[in-house]
C-alpha cells in the first residue's frame, strides 16, 4: 500500500493510543507496526513532531533493572485536536468507502 496514505493517519493513530494511557516509544512503535505495515522507525519522528507541536509531553520513569524510560503523555490540547481530527477522518473515510464500493460494474 502506498506509504503516503499511511503517513497522514499515523499521527492520529499515535494520539489514539496515547489517549488510552501513557506509553514509552517502543510500546507505540510495536503496537502500531503489529497492526499496520510500516517501517518500525517511522513512529519516532512522529512522536517528536507531536511533542514539538505541544500535543504530547514526556517524562522519565524509573524501571526496575534498567535505565529510566521516556514516557509520552497526551496533553489537553492533544486530546482536543485528536477529537477533531478523528471526526474529520472518520467522515472522510466513510465518504471514500462509499465512493469506492459504489461501482456500477459490480452490479452489471
Amino acid at each position: 500500500m502506498n506509504a503516503q496514505y499511511k503517513k497522514g493517519v499515523l499521527e492520529l493513530c499515535v494520539l489514539s493510543l496515547l489517549k488510552q494511557r501513557d506509553c514509552y516509544g517502543y510500546e507505540i512503535s510495536d503496537s502500531l507496526s503489529k497492526r499496520i505495515d510500516i517501517a518500525d522507525g517511522t513512529v519516532y519522528p512522529i512522536l517528536r513532531k507531536l511533542k514539538s507541536d505541544g500535543l504530547l509531553t514526556t517524562y522519565l520513569q524509573e524501571e526496575s533493572g534498567g535505565p529510566p524510560r521516556k514516557y509520552y503523555s497526551i496533553t489537553k490540547l492533544g486530546r482536543e485536536i485528536y477529537e477533531r481530527d478523528r471526526a474529520e477522518y472518520l467522515q472522510f473515510a466513510q465518504a471514500i468507502r462509499t465512493l469506492l464500493e459504489d461501482q456500477p460494474d459490480d452490479k452489471a
Binding site: 514509552y24 516509544g25 517502543y26 522507525g41 519516532y44 512522536l47 517528536r48 524510560r69 521516556k70
Partner: peptide, 10 residues
C-alpha cells in the same frame, strides 16, 4: 542524543 536514545532502546 534524544533521538539516538529512542533507537537504542528500540
Amino acid at each position: 542524543s534524544e533521538i539516538i536514545d529512542e533507537y537504542e532502546q528500540h
